[in-house]
């Protein structure tokens, strides 16, 4: 009997080599800044001992107490958070159902020109937010916009209001503009999910006597639930991070009128960088950023542990 010399497991260096760049980039540009930001939120700037300039001093949770304790900060914080959740709710109730409906229509195999529709729906997503903001501001402008004239032609001119300038309508208007721009992303995700469903499954349902309407509700929708989950969590995150761009473009840093469109992003911007005569405050800014980080973290955690693990996935 011959003994087989046991070969040592070759070290797989290539794994390390391939992971390293991503690891380094993530550490330097994502993890380190987050940790640093959390650290900064525990400091405050105080006048330095020499009489000129300021130094940072460890202050524990003082910034957080300020954020929730002082009326000026608390008012802004809760107002921004409330608007963020309104924004989230509107995106979930308007944007995602529209995206789902459009995806369902576009994925009908017999539809002529499906590719064209798909492109058209996705096109606004590719535009810069600044351009989208500018275009819509012009469309809705009471002075030069086409909306007042168009409504006059329809005979409903008296219903026209300067929507972006009224406290009662500004947030809804901004949200609808944002939906117009971004409806393409959930649409694509739903569309990809729908395409993945094998023809046989649908055929079987049809043979069982279901019509198109019921096939959608009983067969297709349950099968794309994972996509629905991904869309929900993307909407949640985007609502806290991406909402800044469109609001800053349309309503400016003060998120007017009377802070009615203020969200965490614009609040953070004003706090960190300052706005006009308000000077920026690195430490309060880091505090707001940290709270925002935790809000997103909690939301994502609920999704990961509460929702995603329960989702049934099907292999076809």
């Amino acid at each position: 009997m011959r003994t087989v010399k046991k070969q040592p497991q070759p070290r797989r260096w290539h794994i390390l080599v391939f992971i390293l760049p991503a690891f380094l980039i993530y550490t330097v540009f994502a993890i380190y800044p987050i940790v640093e930001s959390l650290r900064l939120s525990l400091y405050q700037s105080i006048p330095s001992a020499q009489g000129t300039g300021t130094t940072a001093e460890f202050a524990g949770l003082a910034n957080y107490m300020r954020l929730w304790g002082e009326p000026y900060w608390a008012e802004q914080f809760w107002n921004a958070l409330k608007n963020n959740f309104l924004l989230f709710a509107m995106h979930m109730l308007i944007q995602n159902p529209i995206a789902l409906a459009l995806a369902a229509l576009v994925s009908i195999p017999t539809l002529k020109g499906a590719a064209t529709y798909r492109t058209i729906f996705f096109l606004p997503t590719l535009l810069s937010v600044v351009i989208v903001g500018f275009i819509w501001q012009l469309i809705l402008s009471p002075l030069w916009g086409i909306t007042p004239d168009f409504m006059k032609w329809l005979g409903i001119r008296e219903w026209f209001k300067p929507w972006l300038g009224l406290e009662s309508t500004a947030l809804v208007t901004v949200t609808l503009i944002s939906i117009w721009q971004y409806v393409g992303i959930p649409l694509m995700l739903f569309y990809a999910g729908l395409l993945n469903i094998p023809e046989e499954t649908i055929e079987a349902a049809r043979i069982d006597g279901l019509n198109g309407w019921w096939i959608f509700w009983k067969v297709k929708l349950p099968l794309i639930l994972p996509a629905l989950g991904v869309v929900a969590i993307l909407t949640y995150i985007g609502n806290f991070t991406a909402s800044f761009d469109i609001i800053y473009t349309l309503q400016g840093g003060l998120a007017g009128p009377d802070y009615s469109t203020d969200v965490m992003g614009t609040f953070l911007f004003r706090t960190f960088f300052g706005f006009q005569s308000q000077l920026g405050d690195t430490y309060m800014g880091a505090t707001v950023a940290s709270v925002l980080f935790f809000i997103i973290l909690v939301g994502v955690a609920i999704y990961l542990f509460g929702v995603q693990r329960r989702l049934q996935r099907y292999d076809f």
Binding site: Q137, L140, S141, P142, L143, W144, P148, F160, K161, P162, W163, L164, G165, L166, P257
Partner: peptide, 16 residues
């Protein structure tokens, strides 16, 4: 002020 002044920006006013 003009109709819809609530949505009128600084540049709008300048142009007007």
């Amino acid at each position: 002020l003009g109709d819809g002044y609530q949505a009128q920006t600084y540049t709008d006013s300048q142009n007007l």
